[in-house]
């Protein structure tokens, strides 16, 4: 949500400049973000909204071109079509990865061409490449996760520590990721941040937990995340209560005392009734 504040401001600016060009076309608001999950895995996400009925709503089915721009040239990384939520995701093709590995900064542009419904619009995003490493350390029975981030110096060597950037430590849970460690974890002068892993966090039945370390929505670095798996969780013992014999179980799992009681009562009374029926037929035979 908060990344849209600057965009909407920019959109307002654009609106004033275009005021004299009178046309009925809608104006789109474009959001652009970058995510790196590994050296080979980088993706761009665009999000397009437009003002309808006095509020911004996602626009579906728009095609946008995503470009990597240099001082002089502009290369098309690929096209994306927005979905129902107005989002489109592009995995950057591997053909560009080796080229990007040479660079220390990328200038991405999302471009919407002028079409029947919308005026032309573009959005650029400047990302400085950073490299995230995560170490899982056990020291004095403390479980620690250490993130270290480096970036390229002017010579292109990955040596410079990245400092003063917030780094998030998360564990995978159903539906969402749970933050662990302190509230804010900033990279120190050495480009490092360390948190203590909680010792009471449930893992799966073996104690496995997926950890995600992440730089999130940085104006400079975009999103960088690295996932790992640790066996530091408390193994979860799943207690399937539905197989127990309780009053709320399925009919087949009725408590034994209840089954015995009810069935013996039924057997007793219906047994007596059966006996009486038999005796009634005895009456029939005892007529002489």
């Amino acid at each position: 949500m908060k990344i849209f504040v600057p965009y909407s401001l920019a959109g307002l600016l654009l609106l004033t400049t275009c005021l004299n060009s009178v046309q009925a076309k809608e104006k789109a608001k474009i959001g652009l973000s970058y995510l790196k999950t590994g050296a080979e895995q980088r993706q761009l996400t665009v999000e397009v909204k437009s003002r309808m009925d006095n509020r911004y709503q996602p626009v579906e089915g728009l095609t946008l071109g995503l470009y990597l721009e240099n001082d002089s040239e502009s290369e098309l990384l690929g096209n994306v079509v927005t979905d129902a939520k107005g989002k489109g995701i592009l995995m950057i093709p591997s053909s560009f990865i080796s080229k990007m590995n040479e660079m220390s900064e990328f200038n991405f542009v999302a471009r919407l061409e002028d079409n029947d419904g919308y005026t032309a619009k573009e959005k650029d995003l400047l990302i400085r490449e950073a490299f995230l490493d995560v170490d899982y350390i056990i020291r004095d029975s403390l479980k620690l996760i250490q993130a270290s981030v480096k970036e390229k110096d002017s010579l292109g060597n990955t040596v410079l520590p990245t400092v003063d950037v917030e780094i998030k430590f998360l564990v995978e849970r159903p539906f969402s990721r749970l933050p662990i460690g302190g509230k804010y974890n900033m990279l120190n002068k050495e480009g490092k941040a360390t948190i203590e892993f909680p010792d009471d966090l449930p893992g799966d039945s073996m104690g496995h937990i997926s950890v995600v370390v992440k730089i999130e929505d940085s104006d400079v670095y975009g999103n960088i995340e690295k996932t790992g798996d640790v066996i530091w969780g408390v193994p979860t013992v799943f207690d399937d209560a539905t197989i127990k014999r309780t009053l709320w179980s399925a009919g087949a799992n009725a408590p034994y005392p209840l089954l015995v009681l009810v069935n013996s009562l039924i057997a007793a009374v219906w047994g007596i009734m059966l006996f009486i029926l038999i005796r009634i037929f005895h009456i029939k035979k005892a007529d002489n």
């Binding site: 849970r173 159903p174 539906f175 969402s176 990721r177 749970l178 966090l201 449930p202 979860t236």
Partner: peptide, 14 residues
């Protein structure tokens, strides 16, 4: 959320 994972979320925060 899931009680066994000891986590709940409202969509924004977990």
């Amino acid at each position: 959320g899931d009680k066994l994972s000891d986590s709940v979320t409202n969509g924004d925060e977990t």
